[in-house]
Each structure stands twice: as C-alpha cells, then as structure tokens.
C-alpha cells in the first residue's frame, strides 16, 4: 500500500454544555504518495475539523470518538504529545487558511522560520539563517535579506502566505495540509499561490491534502478528490473522473450549480 495518510471510519464531535453535536460520521480518506488530494465540501461540512484532527490541534471541546488516523503505520489518534512530536510533527506540515493571523505578530519573520529549522532539521543559528534565505527565495519572495528582518504586519497577505508556504516545505515533510490556503487572498494572488504550491509539490514529491470549497481551484491542481458532505466522504475519485462522471447525487448537484454559476458569470 502506498498511502501516506489513511483515515479510517473517523467519528468526531463537539460537546458544549452537555450538548453533543457530531461533526464527522465515519470519514474514510486515503492520500497517496506524491499526490495532491482535494477535499471539497460546503461550509460546516467538517473540512477544517478533519484537518485539525490530522494536525493534532483540535480545540479542547472537540473529541475523536472512534476511528483511526494512520500516518506511516502509526495511529495518531490518542497519541501522547511527546510521541507525536517524535513521529509526526516534522512530517506533517500545514499551510493555514488565514495568513494574517498565522504568524506571530511580534517576532521577525526570519526568526520564526529559523526556529522551525532549528527544531526539526537540527541546524545551528548560522546555518538556519542561510537556509531561511534560500527558502524565501524558493517561494519567490523578492529581497529575502530584507524580509527576514521584517515583522509579519509589514508584509502583504500574499507575501505572508509565501512565508507560511516556505515554513510548510522547510523541513521536507511527507504531507502538507493546505486548509483553504487561498480564500483570504484576492484572485490574482490566489493564482500565483496555487502555482507555487503545485510547483513546490512536484519538485519535492510531498503529498498535499488540499482543502477547498472552490471546485475551480480543485480542478486546476488536484490528482484525486474527496467530497465531504454532512460529515461523510460521499465520493472519492480521480479528479478527471469526478468532473466527467460524478457518481454521487450531491456531487452531481454541486457540479451543476458550479457550472451554472460560471455560465452566469461568463454571460454577464
């Protein structure tokens, strides 16, 4: 089997004041090596919760009730924090939804990137600084020498997302979880960021779980697609098949609405 990540029968819910609401009801998801796997779903379908469960950053009110998240043969569910740090933290990275709040506002960009390299790649301070410049260069940031000394608020949204992409790819992870990485950006920047992720992914061979509600974006960059609907994966297909031959009713509706939407836009 060539799966990097294998989520099986995952149940997850939020409890607030004795009231329990289920979010995921037996999700199955398999991500193959070196592929971009799309995860599509409407707002509230549980996309981000699934991402957080894989990353181990679920809010304290949320619990995993059943199921497995297998990463390289280890079940991440219920794994103690220190063990998780050893086995998974370095190899599963994330590109967050909101680049505005995902960097520490009072620390310089270079230091934040450097910390990650020193933690996982065991680089010393000088080597880390050099590597940071290379990484920023790889994500096509102009004048990296200036940017490392800047604070996040001095950078544009697109620049920050590039920094976060650099951070995600910095320790050569096996899986990157990109949780709607372009929703907070405007359309022109969106396109550049998508190209960048695609390019870095094909260069490094990292697998990517690409979460989005935008079928247009998914069609552009994904190899496989899973459709998440009311806490369940209702369909998983290769991207080509999914768009030509959707099997599940929900997917068919989704595609139809999207095509109407685009037709409407084009005639306008």
């Amino acid at each position: 089997m060539n799966a990097v990540l294998d989520v099986q029968n995952l149940y997850l819910g939020v409890s607030q004041k004795r009231h329990y609401s289920p979010i995921l009801n037996g999700v199955n998801l398999e991500i193959q090596r070196s592929q971009i796997h799309g995860l599509v779903g409407e707002s509230g379908a549980g996309k981000s919760m699934l991402a957080k469960a894989i990353l181990g950053i679920l809010p304290s009110s949320t619990t995993i009730d059943k199921g497995y998240i297998h990463f390289k043969g280890n079940d991440l569910v219920g794994m103690p924090r220190y063990e998780r740090r050893q086995l998974a933290s370095r190899h599963i990275a994330m590109i967050p939804q909101d680049p505005m709040t995902s960097l520490n506002p009072v620390r310089r960009v270079g230091n934040q990137l450097g910390d990650v390299l020193r933690l996982h790649m065991k680089l010393n301070r000088t080597l880390a600084q050099e590597r940071v410049l290379e990484l920023l260069n790889d994500v096509q940031i102009r004048d990296p020498k200036r940017v490392v000394h800047q604070y996040p608020f001095e950078l544009s949204g697109g620049m920050r997302q590039r920094v976060l992409i650099a951070m995600a790819f910095s320790c050569k992870p096996e899986l990157i979880i990109a949780d709607e990485p372009t929703t907070a950006l405007d359309v022109t920047v969106q396109r550049q960021i998508l190209q960048l992720i695609k390019q870095l992914q094909s260069e490094t061979g990292t697998s990517v779980l690409f979460i989005s509600h935008d079928l247009g974006v998914i069609a552009k960059i994904c190899d496989h697609v899973s459709i998440l609907h009311t806490g369940n994966v209702v369909e998983m297909q290769s991207a080509v098949n999914l768009f030509q031959n959707p099997r599940h009713e929900y997917t068919q509706n989704l595609l139809e609405i999207t095509s109407h939407y685009y037709r409407f836009e084009n005639t306008d």
Binding site: K52, L55, G56, I57, R81, R84, R85, A88, S89, R90, I92, A93, M94, P96, D98, T101, S102, L103, N104, P105, V106, R107, D115, V116, L119, H120, M167
Partner: peptide, 24 residues
C-alpha cells in the same frame, strides 16, 4: 492561529509559552 501553528509544528509547550506568548 499562530499558536495552533506552533503546536502543529511540534514546539514544546514551554517553548511556546516562552517564545510565542510572552513576547506578545
């Protein structure tokens, strides 16, 4: 978000408290 991010990267709690929260 940057704290969740730091947690997912795998920094230890003590490091996060000292290096991410205290400066803020």
């Amino acid at each position: 978000e940057y704290i969740s991010s730091a947690v997912s990267i795998g920094f230890e709690r003590w490091t996060i408290l000292w290096r991410e929260i205290l400066p803020n």
